[in-house]
Structures are given as C-alpha cells and as structure tokens.
Amino acid sequence: MLHTFAVYVDNKPGVLNRVSSLFRRRAFNIESLTVGHTETPGVSRMTVVVDTDEYGARRLEAHLYKLVPCRRVDNITAAASIARDLALIKVAATGEARTHVMQLVDVYRARIVDVSPESLVIETTGTEDKIDSLLEVLRPYGVVEMVRTGRVAMARGASSARRSVAPPSRPAPVAAESGGDVSHGSV
C-alpha cells in the first residue's frame, strides 16, 4: 500500500541525495518525492510516497532517522491529512474545441494561465484523483505537454506539532555534495 511520509531534514547540499540513495539502497520504490522550505529556517520538508507494507514503512522510518541530517519523520498515511498535487497541462485546442476545454476547466475549478493561438495552458491543484480525471477528459483534445509536482501532504488539525523541529544551532559542516540543494530539488 502507499505510505506518505513527511520528512524534515537540514537544508544542506547533498541531503536529497542521501535520502533518495537510502530508498534505492534498501530497494524501496519512490512513487513521488517533493521538497521545499518549511516555516523553520534551515529546515526543509520532503513529502515522500512509497509503496510498501506496514513493516517496510516502519523500517524505512527507522532508516530515515539514522540519517544524520534527518530531524523528524512522520508517517501521515493513517492520519487525517490533506494531500495535493499541482499540474500544468498544455492542450492543443482551437476553434470549437477551445470552448469545450474552457468549460471543462470551469467544471474542475482549474485555471487557464496561458493562451496562444494553438494552445492553452491549464493549472490545477487537487488530489491526484482529481487531476487524473481532468487529464482523462482533456486527452481527446490533445494534451501536448504536462508537468506535475507530485504529492505534498500535511496532517489536519494540530497533530503535526507533535514534535517541533528546531532550526540548526550552528552552521554545521557541509555534507557531501552530490545531490544539489535540496530546497530546489525534486525527484
């Protein structure tokens, strides 16, 4: 089954590589992974979705904690949480088709963010299901390009404040560089 982890890591070069390398090394398959800044300076948050069983999820959590730059791991699979994915979809639509596409965009509460004579770019945010379904209905009109962020997730209510993540107290030594700056990375 799919497990969703919120992983808090020090924002240092190479950290993304350490995390993704752990998944590869332990033969876990990443369904999606997103990274971004958090409310705490110096700390990044990853949302990682992995297909594994309950024991695998526990072991993965334990392995993540063994990474020195990893500060906290929450398995938010079972927690009531909000999960969102963002997609940009370019559809080749002219003439009458264009009107149909614009109606669909309305129905799905998506937005048109770019218009050219040959195509439209649609932006949509929502659950993966909703985006999949929008994609399905747009396909007949000709989807020429698409990009998705992958899932970001957050537990509802106050539960994510279970443990707070303090900012790094001193500029720690530069961790091994091979994965680029985590705050901009995404696998």
Binding site: N17, R25, K66, L67, V174, A176, E177
Partner: peptide, 14 residues
C-alpha cells in the same frame, strides 16, 4: 563521499 555514501553511517566533505 559519493562512493562511500551507502557504506558509511555518515560522511563529510570539508
């Protein structure tokens, strides 16, 4: 540091 990443507990490039 790249080579030894999976065979160390941790490594540093200083």
């Amino acid at each position: 540091t790249g080579i030894t990443l999976p065979i160390t507990k941790h490594n540093y490039l200083v």
